[in-house]
Amino acid sequence: KYSDMIVAAIQAEKNRAGSSRQSIQKYIKSHYKVGENADSQIKLSIKRLVTTGVLKQTKGVGASGSFRLA
């Protein structure tokens, strides 16, 4: 599940300011076997996790910027 992968990526990075979408994508692609549409799936999952309150956006708008666990 992409949401689990995103949470794992943010936990692994341990950046106080949060993790960027690009760094999350890079982590997921190197640690998991994902399909061609992974980028758009990650983007959608990040937006969903922010609206449900699992992630907090520290910089930027939408799916860009930095995110950390709430």
Rank of each mutant, 00 (worst) to 15 (best):
K1G: 07
K59N: 08
A8T: 05
I6C: 03
E13S: 11
K33Y: 08
G65W: 15
S20W: 04
A70D: 05
A17L: 11
Q22S: 12
S64K: 11
R68Q: 13
R21E: 15
I6F: 01
K56D: 04
Q57C: 12
K33E: 12
A8I: 06
A63F: 10
A8C: 11
K33L: 09
K26A: 13
G60S: 07
G65F: 14
I28K: 01
G35H: 06
K1Q: 09
Q11D: 04
Q25V: 15
D39T: 08
T52C: 15
R21W: 15
R16Y: 10
R68H: 11
K43P: 03
K47M: 13
K59Y: 10
K43S: 13
G53D: 01
S19K: 04
Q41D: 10
A9M: 03
V34Q: 11
A12T: 04
V7M: 08
K1E: 09
T52Y: 08
S30E: 13
Y32N: 02
V50M: 04
S20I: 05
R48L: 13
I28Q: 01
Q41Y: 12
N15P: 02
F67T: 02
V50E: 03
S19N: 02
T51E: 15
S64H: 13
G62D: 08
T51H: 11
A17C: 15
L49I: 01
M5Y: 06
D39G: 06
K47T: 08
I6D: 00
A17P: 04
L44V: 07
G18D: 03
S23I: 03
V61L: 09
K14M: 07
V50Q: 03
I42E: 02
A38Q: 04
A9G: 00
I42P: 00
S23A: 10
D39W: 09
M5G: 01
S45P: 00
S40H: 12
V61N: 11
K29Y: 10
E36C: 10
I46P: 02
V61F: 11
K26E: 14
I6M: 00
T58A: 07
Q25G: 08
S66N: 12
T58N: 09
S40N: 12
K56V: 15
K26Q: 12
K47H: 09
A38F: 11
I46V: 03
T51Y: 10
N37K: 08
E36N: 13
F67I: 05
Y2R: 00
I46C: 02
V54F: 08
V50C: 15
S66Q: 10
R68S: 12
I46S: 00
I42H: 00
I42G: 00
S3V: 12
V7F: 06
G65C: 15
F67S: 02
D39H: 06
